[in-house]
């Protein structure tokens, strides 16, 4: 365990998570759906450069890939979403587990997301096998 590396990756992962759930709701509120599309290019790109292209999250060739999506998902799940609104300034767009939000409401979404992602992951594995 290289703790310096773990803390570095935790910082850059938190940067991606915080960036996504402040920039994304704000861009969506300001420019509607096109803002949501632009937000991806603004924050996901920078997050990917630090976390994966320059490898701040310590992924290895023989290890199962941990995407920056994990800290991103967890950030909003725990801390909710913050939005810079057009007329009211900085407002809260969603509450997270830290605010005492009810996990039961999100559980069906989470379970079905895991089901779909497992199917997608399996198909991706099959695709990659036939690709080599």
């Amino acid at each position: 365990m290289n703790w310096n590396r773990i803390f570095l990756g935790a910082f850059t992962g938190a940067f991606a998570g915080y960036g996504v759930f402040t920039i994304w709701p704000s861009a969506l509120a300001r420019w509607n759906w096109l803002g949501g599309w632009l937000a991806a290019g603004i924050i996901i790109t920078t997050g990917w450069w630090v976390n994966h292209y320059l490898n701040a999250i310590p992924n290895k060739n023989d290890g199962a890939w941990i995407d920056m999506a994990l800290p991103i998902w967890l950030s909003s799940f725990l801390g909710g979403n913050v939005m810079l609104s057009v007329d009211k300034g900085l407002v809260r767009a969603a509450y997270g587990m830290f605010h005492g939000a009810n996990i039961g409401g999100a559980l069906p979404t989470i379970m079905l997301e895991l089901v779909g992602a497992t199917i997608g992951g399996y198909l991706l594995y099959k695709y990659r096998r036939s690709d080599v």
Partner: peptide, 12 residues
């Protein structure tokens, strides 16, 4: 809330 982002599906 809590929001369960599509990020979970990408990671998983």
């Amino acid at each position: 809330g809590p929001w369960s982002d599509q990020a979970l599906t990408c990671f998983w």
